[in-house]
Structures are given as structure tokens and as C-alpha cells.
Design a protein around this nucleic acid. Structure first.
Length: 342
DNA sequence: TTAGGGTTAG
């Protein structure tokens, strides 16, 4: 009880440092062999969400649009770089159509897109499932005397993968590499690995991971490449294979991050290994890896499945109270909770 | 000096 009251205090006093402190106290909790209860988790969530809301990269669309229009009307006109930064921010907020519209306004005002701008627009079309538009945008490169780069091809390959057109993604990859138009990098391979995983072909994904090394891919396979396959294996409930790959990754000195742990925690919860999930959470905290909103969504979901409805509900309420932007999964979980409670 | 890849439900 003493630890709990300390946690409550430190989480409400300040944001960043205290959130970290709360987590280390939580890690101590695990080390001492105690299972933290929901109040403990709730206190830590409070601290984390306060930290998230103070993050300058988290911004709302209205502010970004206001800044865009101020820049568009200022004279002399700023260079294309700050405009690209604004578009990037909107892409992060998943406002793809808005980005396409704003780019049109930029062109009409006389701001010439560079390679980076065109890559951003291609990416938006890909996320809008309009890869046909993206391909035709390649003409813009030549019209403006620009050369598509490795990022352009990676984005297009990802576009095909997003539309489940993995064969076409592979064709584009092979054609462009053989023609010497680009040298694939770790992002290219990770994108193709994701494609194979989406097709349910984990074997091909693993083979590609090996092939990356044979080809002397620089940089070498990283946490994203490994996490993609780990996630896919867990999705197929191949828990042993996933853990084997996870250990291989660690032994190679590749550091797992919050996404890797979220996948692992989710995967082990799905096969009913709550104890294993707690251990992974413990491991994550002891390594100083910060849980994020998806981590808590997984926890809320599993609290529901365990019948701990009141606790799950309070986690969601705290998230909303703290100004975190619950995503549609959180909303869905809320509906589930309401359904169970009624 | 801006762009591209991995996680959360059912």
C-alpha cells in the first residue's frame, strides 16, 4: 500500500521525470514478486499520458492547417522544406486527402515540389488505396527534372503491399533492382517481408531475412524486420517460433522496442499466457522501454477477457480524462465494456 | 535537411 501511495503522488506532481520514476517503481514491484493491481497500472498510465500530451510532435490538425496558411501567405515565400515538414505532420495524423489538397495549393502558389514532396504525395495516394495515381505521379518527376530515389521505390512497393498486391510489389522490386535504378535497403526488405507475412507465408519472410544478409544489405536486418515476422508468427499462434526469433534478434544485439513488446504481449495473451505477458511487461519496464497507448489497449482488452470489467473501464476513463487520443480500438473496447456491464 | 517499413480488435 505504501508503494501505491508513493506512485499516486509522483504521477500527479510532474510529467516526464515522474512518469519514468513511476515506471521504475513499477519495475521494482515486479522484481519483488508482486503482481501490480489495476490502481498501480492506472497511476502509471496517468503519468505516461501526461508525458504524451506534452510532446511537441503531438499536434492537432487545426494548428497545423493554420500554420500552413500563414506560411502560404507570407512573403517572401518560405522554401519547400518547411512545407514538406507540415505535410509530414499531417501524414502522421493520417490526413492523407488533406495533404494531397494542400500540395495542390502549394503548386498553385508557385512552390515547386521537390523529390521529398512527391514522395510524400505518392505515400498519401498509396494509403488512400489509389496506387494508380501514385504511378502516374512518376511522370511529375521527369517533367520537373527530378530523379525518383530509393524512398520513391520503397513507397511504391509499400503501396502494392498495402493493396495486397504482393506479386506486383515483387515485380517492381526485381525490375528496378535489375535495371540498376535503385539499391534496396533495410526498409525495402522490411516492406517485402510485411508483404509475405500478409500472404501468410512466414517461411518466405524468414528466407528474405536471410537473403538480406547474403546480399550484404546495409544496414543489416533491424528491429522492424524482425518484429514484422515475430508478429506474423504470433498471429498464427506459433509462439515457440516467435520466441526463438525474438531470442535470435536479441543475441544479435538488436534492441527490442515498444512495438516488439506490444506484439509479444498481445501474442501471449491470445494463447492465454497471462503470466508470460506479465513477465514480458516486467522485462520491458526493466529495460526502460515505455508502454504506450497500444500497450494499454492490449491490457484493457485482456482485462475484459479476464472479466475484470470495472478495472478495464477505469483504464479507458483515465486515458480519456488525460487527453490522450483514444483510437477506434479504444472506442470499440469501450463498447465491449458497456456491453458487458449492462 | 523535410520523405519510405513493424504493434493494439474480431
Amino acid at each position: 500500500m505504501l508503494v501505491l501511495s508513493v506512485l499516486s503522488h509522483i504521477a500527479t506532481v510532474d510529467h516526464l521525470k515522474q512518469a519514468g520514476l513511476s515506471l521504475s517503481v513499477l519495475a521494482q514491484f515486479f522484481k519483488l514478486g508482486h503482481q501490480p493491481d489495476i490502481t498501480t497500472f492506472a497511476t502509471v498510465i496517468n503519468a505516461i499520458l501526461l508525458q504524451t500530451s506534452s510532446n511537441p510532435n503531438v499536434s492537432n490538425v487545426e494548428d497545423v492547417l493554420k500554420l500552413f496558411h500563414e506560411m502560404l501567405h507570407s512573403r517572401p515565400l518560405p522554401s519547400v522544406v518547411p512545407f514538406n515538414q507540415i505535410l509530414t505532420q499531417l501524414v502522421r495524423l493520417k490526413h492523407y486527402s488533406t495533404v494531397v489538397y494542400l500540395n495542390r495549393q502549394m503548386v498553385l502558389t508557385g512552390i515547386a515540389p521537390d523529390v521529398c514532396t512527391l514522395n510524400i504525395i505518392i505515400n498519401c495516394f498509396c494509403h488512400l488505396n489509389l496506387i494508380g495515381f501514385s504511378s502516374s505521379l512518376l511522370g511529375q518527376f521527369f517533367k520537373r527534372g527530378l530523379q525518383p530515389d530509393v524512398c520513391t521505390f520503397n513507397t511504391l512497393i509499400n503501396g502494392f503491399v498495402l493493396e495486397n498486391r504482393v506479386v506486383e510489389a515483387l515485380l517492381l522490386f526485381t525490375k528496378m533492382v535489375e535495371a540498376g535504378h535503385f539499391k534496396p535497403i533495410v526498409v525495402t526488405f522490411s516492406t517485402l517481408i510485411k508483404g509475405f507475412c500478409m500472404m501468410g507465408n512466414n517461411t518466405a519472410a524468414m528466407q528474405l531475412l536471410t537473403k538480406m544478409e547474403e546480399r550484404g544489405c546495409q544496414p543489416e536486418p533491424n528491429v522492424v524486420a524482425y518484429s514484422t515476422i515475430i508478429h506474423s508468427l504470433l498471429k498464427d499462434t506459433l509462439y515457440v517460433d516467435a520466441m526463438k526469433l525474438f531470442l535470435e534478434m536479441i543475441s544479435r544485439g538488436i534492441v527490442a522496442d515498444v512495438v516488439t513488446y506490444n506484439s509479444l504481449i498481445h501474442g501471449v495473451c491470445n494463447v492465454g499466457q497471462w503470466k508470460e505477458a506479465t513477465m514480458l511487461l516486467n522485462e520491458m519496464l526493466s529495460k526502460g522501454i515505455f508502454p504506450d497507448v497500444p500497450t494499454f489497449n492490449v491490457l484493457v482488452d485482456n482485462l475484459c477477457k479476464e472479466g475484470m470489467v470495472v478495472e478495464a473501464k477505469s483504464v479507458v476513463e483515465i486515458m480519456i480524462q488525460r487527453g490522450a487520443e483514444p483510437n477506434w480500438i479504444t472506442y470499440m473496447l469501450t463498447l465491449v465494456i458497456r456491453g458487458i456491464s449492462s
